[in-house]
Structures are given as C-alpha cells and as structure tokens.
Amino acid sequence: MDRTVELLKKSNALLEGHFLLSSGRHSRKYIQCAKLIENPVYCEEIAKIIAKKIKEAGIKVDLCVGPAMGGIIIAYEVARALGVNAIFTERVDNIMTLRRGFEIKKDMNVIIVEDVITTGKSSFETVDVIEKEGANTVALTSIVNRSGLDQIRGLKLISATEIQINSFDPDNLPDDLKDTPAVKPGSRK
C-alpha cells in the first residue's frame, strides 16, 4: 500500500458518508487532511515525500506558498524539507490575498503547496497572487491529487499520492445520497 494512503487511513483522514464538495458536487468519500496534519510525525513524513518528488523533477524552488487553510502547515513542512521559506495566502472578502507582511520577490520560483488538489481553484487563485508580484509559479503540489491529471493549465502537479473519488452533480445524485443529508467539511464558503 502507498505510504501516504496508509498514513491517511491511520489518521482517520479518509471519511465516508455524503459530502458537499467546494465545487458544488457531491461525494460518498472525503479526504480530511487536517486529521493527518495534526500528527507532526506523519505531516513531516508526507512533506519529505513531496520534497523528494520536487527534487527528482529537477524543479528549482525559492519559496513555498500554501493557500489558507489547508495548505498552511503542509507548505511549512515542505519548505522545511526543501530548505526554503514558507508563506500563505488567505481570503479577504472571498478574494485570495497576500497579507501579514509576506513578500514574494520578483522572479522567484514559487511552488504552491495544498492539502488536496481537485479542480485547482484555490491553487489558481494563489497563482494570480504570485503573478501579480512578478514571480513564477513552477509547480502545484499537494498531499493528495484528486484531479486525475498530471498538470493543470500547464503547471505540473506533484503529489504524495493520487486518489480517485467519484463525485456527482447535485441534480443527478445516486439514490443512497438523496436520502442522506450532506455535510460540507471544506473551508471555502
């Protein structure tokens, strides 16, 4: 078994039920990476897996940026494994923003570090912030890649593991989900 999946299971981060995803779609499964991240030993191990894959891909990194909330801690740990700084972006009035005195210098090579990448929405909100500062986003990274893709909009995806989870349009739910109230565990409003 994949070590990342093993740690997700050990930390009870793989949930089953009826979930309303940030995309508006519904799912029987949800990956709550916060349960894995709460264990510093597991988080450090996963970050080292991601950092190793970044190095193997030959990607030069000057800075790690984690979109709040899910990317903050894992971005810090990946940055530590790579020997670079970590900062985070956060939403202000639902717009991803750079705050708290954080700086992204022009021409820096920046990776975005997420807990889970599905559509890349939060990642690309952060790409916009990075580009506005004149820096280069060189890869999207995550604990889990749910997208089923190797890249999104030309940016390479590097993840500790890939997990495919079926999702459903709200107008076309399977019968078993129609009668079960949906839980919305994500952070996006």
Rank of each mutant, 00 (worst) to 15 (best):
E131D: 06
D150A: 14
F88G: 07
D107Q: 00
D179H: 14
S122W: 04
K132F: 15
L82A: 00
D2H: 14
S27V: 07
L20R: 14
G186D: 01
T141V: 12
I165F: 13
D176R: 02
I73K: 11
E77Y: 10
L140I: 04
F124P: 05
E133M: 07
V5A: 13
P174L: 13
E38Q: 15
T97Q: 08
A182R: 01
G120H: 05
G58M: 08
T97V: 13
T97W: 00
K53S: 10
A135G: 08
I73G: 05
I117D: 05
T161R: 02
R99V: 11
V144A: 08
A182V: 09
L21Y: 15
I104E: 00
E133L: 11
A47W: 11
H18A: 06
A182D: 08
T97N: 10
R28K: 15
V144L: 05
P185Y: 03
E44P: 08
L36Q: 03
E16S: 15
N39P: 06
E45V: 11
I59V: 14
A51I: 14
I87D: 01
K48M: 09
G101T: 09
V138Y: 04
M108A: 07
G71D: 07
K9F: 02
N12D: 10
I46T: 15
S147N: 04
G83Q: 11
G154T: 05
S167F: 04
L98A: 13
G154K: 02
L157S: 02
K121Q: 04
I165N: 08
G58K: 00
P40L: 10
E77T: 03
L98W: 09
S122L: 10
T137A: 05
L177W: 06
N109F: 05
V138E: 03
A79R: 03
E45H: 09
T118R: 09
K35A: 15
A160F: 05
R91H: 13
I74T: 02
C64T: 10
K132A: 10
A86D: 13
T89A: 04
I72G: 07
